[in-house]
Amino acid sequence: MDWTSLRLLLLLLVGCLLAGSWQPVRAADVLRLATTTSTDNSGLLRAILPQFERQHGQRVQVIAVGSGKALKLAQNGDVDVVLVHDRRAEDAFVAAGYGVERRDVMYNDFVLLGPRSDPAGVRQSADVVDAFRRIADHQARFVSRGDDSGTDRMEKSYWQQLALRVSGRPWYVAAGLGMGEVLMMAGEMQAYTLSDRATHATYSARTGLEILFQGDRRMFNPYGVIAVNPRLHPQVNHAGARALIDWLSGPAGRAAIGAFRPHGEQLFFVAPDG
């Protein structure tokens, strides 16, 4: 056997050995999930996604941004599936043909936070709009997400109901940040802010902020999952997206969500069947 033949044989042997111990990650094995920061900051995804990954052989790449940005990524075909909390925007996204197979997944609620001293008297509010009116009347410091997230849009809807333009006011701070970062900022500034309950529960020990108003039906916070339309973007991992949607809305995913109770507190509730 000449040197060239021997070299080829050695290369084949090495290739066989490597093939037995290392497998490249195929594109179909990676699922790109764009989601709101609340599902990431709260620790929910870190708790439940490993179960899905083990069961379905998919590695989920999480991109945590505001709901508006998540839907934009999906519209452009830069992700395979979205998990967000802005029902009006979700319905528009599906109606425009960008998304398919939307399903309700879970819900919690928004809470209005502030310092214990409560300078605007938010604790005495009759409803959530009255709470925001009190903040504006007292020109109390308020930190807004300012990032076109579901939380940001919900907050702005309250100001709109008051016909108040708060952008540019010296007491109103538009941070342009995720929920966790906004909570830390509001804690340092002893300011008011609107948060989803789950992220507040995760950060409360670090911020010192208290729930000053809650329970208004207008603070309901549902989450939905949507696959990117493969007809618009054939390159997406649609099979993986459908598997995640089925899992989140099925028995295994619902059980995982319900079991997520850091410090014994349930932060997300599964959506009703049907």
Rank of each mutant, 00 (worst) to 15 (best):
S249V: 07
V236P: 11
N76F: 10
R116L: 12
R88Q: 01
Q58V: 09
P50T: 03
E155D: 02
F268D: 08
W171L: 07
Q55P: 11
A92L: 00
A259H: 09
V270H: 08
Q75P: 02
R231G: 10
L9N: 15
T37K: 00
R7D: 15
L209E: 05
A163H: 14
Q23K: 13
L31T: 09
L13N: 06
F93E: 01
Y107M: 06
R102V: 04
L212V: 15
R169G: 08
R88V: 01
G43F: 01
R145W: 11
L17Q: 13
G77C: 08
L244S: 06
S42A: 05
W247S: 04
L8E: 15
K156V: 02
G187M: 05
L17E: 10
P170Y: 04
Q190L: 06
A243L: 05
E155C: 00
Q160R: 08
G99V: 01
A89L: 00
P272C: 13
E210R: 09
L194Y: 01
A259D: 12
L248S: 05
G121M: 08
L244F: 05
R102A: 03
H233T: 08
L73Q: 03
D152P: 02
Q161D: 09
K156D: 04
M185H: 10
S38V: 08
T207C: 11
R133K: 15
R217V: 15
I257G: 07
S157F: 00
D273A: 14
W3S: 15
R54T: 08
Q61N: 12
G121K: 11
A126R: 15
I226M: 02
M189L: 13
S157Q: 02
L267S: 09
E101F: 08
I135P: 04
R46M: 03
L183E: 03
S21D: 14
V236I: 08
E101A: 09
V236K: 02
A74Y: 04
V128F: 02
V173G: 10
H85M: 01
V65L: 03
G150M: 00
H56Y: 10
V166M: 05
Q160K: 09
A255G: 13
A47Q: 04
D109M: 13
F93V: 00
V182T: 10
G250A: 03
Y98Q: 02
L83K: 04
D86C: 00
T202G: 02
A198M: 05
L31S: 10
V65R: 00
L244H: 02
S249I: 04
A252K: 07
D78H: 07
A28R: 13
L177A: 11
Q161N: 10
F110D: 00
G208W: 01
L33C: 06
D118F: 07
H263F: 07
S42H: 05
G121E: 06
S117L: 07
S149C: 01
A256F: 11
A205R: 10
Y107V: 06
F269E: 14
F220I: 06
A92R: 01
A198P: 11
Q190R: 10
L6N: 15
I257H: 07
M189F: 12
G114T: 05
M179T: 13
